[in-house]
Each structure stands twice: as C-alpha cells, then as structure tokens.
Amino acid sequence: MRVVSLMLPEHLDISEPELKILLAGELYEREKLSLGQAADLAGLSKRAFIEIMGMYGFSLFSKSEEDLLTDVANA
C-alpha cells in the first residue's frame, strides 16, 4: 500500500473519511478499482460503500454497454 500526502486549502471543509469516499468512488467509476477495493479504500464494508455511493453521485453500474449486458444476463 502506498501513502499519499495532500496539501488542501484551509477553506476546503472536507474530512479525511469523506475524501477517501470521493477518491474511492471516482476510482471505482473509472474502473481502476473493484467494488471491494474501493470499499476498502473508503474504510467501509461493501454494503456500506454501495449505500453511500448514491449519496455522492456515483453509479454502481459500468458505463460499458458490454458490461451492462453481461450484468443483466447474469442477474
């Protein structure tokens, strides 16, 4: 695991847990992390991460038509 340090502007009112959720959600949407990996990065269970994603405007569903059709076929 790699540690990253960020210098955030003083006026930016964001907590570390919220920043982790935002980063994890973005990386999940970009298909850089699996759902489990994103949940781990956010410090949440998969279920909690799934529930909170919508609150932050992230989608659980892939933007790829092929992935969506595979998900529907496997449902």
Score class of each variant (00 low, 15 high):
residue 2 R to F: 06
residue 4 V to I: 15
residue 30 R to S: 14
residue 61 F to C: 11
residue 32 K to Y: 13
residue 2 R to C: 04
residue 64 S to I: 15
residue 17 P to M: 06
residue 59 S to A: 14
residue 43 G to V: 08
residue 27 L to D: 06
residue 32 K to W: 15
residue 7 M to F: 13
residue 31 E to A: 09
residue 35 L to V: 03
residue 54 G to K: 11
residue 2 R to W: 07
residue 31 E to F: 06
residue 15 S to V: 12
residue 2 R to E: 13
residue 36 G to K: 09
residue 69 L to Q: 10
residue 2 R to G: 05
residue 31 E to M: 08
residue 42 A to V: 06
residue 21 I to C: 01
residue 20 K to G: 01
residue 28 Y to I: 08
residue 64 S to H: 13
residue 58 F to S: 13
residue 53 M to Y: 00
residue 73 A to S: 14
residue 14 I to Q: 10
residue 57 G to M: 06
residue 48 A to Q: 09
residue 23 L to I: 10
residue 72 V to M: 07
residue 74 N to Y: 01
residue 44 L to H: 01
residue 3 V to E: 10
residue 24 A to P: 12
residue 38 A to V: 06
residue 71 D to A: 14
residue 71 D to C: 06
residue 30 R to I: 11
residue 33 L to N: 04
residue 33 L to D: 02
residue 40 D to F: 07
residue 53 M to E: 01
residue 4 V to K: 04
residue 16 E to V: 13
residue 4 V to R: 01
residue 2 R to P: 05
residue 75 A to S: 12
residue 53 M to F: 03
residue 36 G to V: 13
residue 38 A to S: 11
residue 67 D to G: 03
residue 39 A to S: 13
residue 73 A to Q: 13
residue 36 G to E: 10
residue 74 N to D: 05
residue 35 L to W: 07
residue 23 L to Q: 06
residue 31 E to Q: 12
residue 32 K to C: 04
residue 21 I to Q: 02
residue 67 D to Y: 03
residue 35 L to F: 07
residue 3 V to K: 02
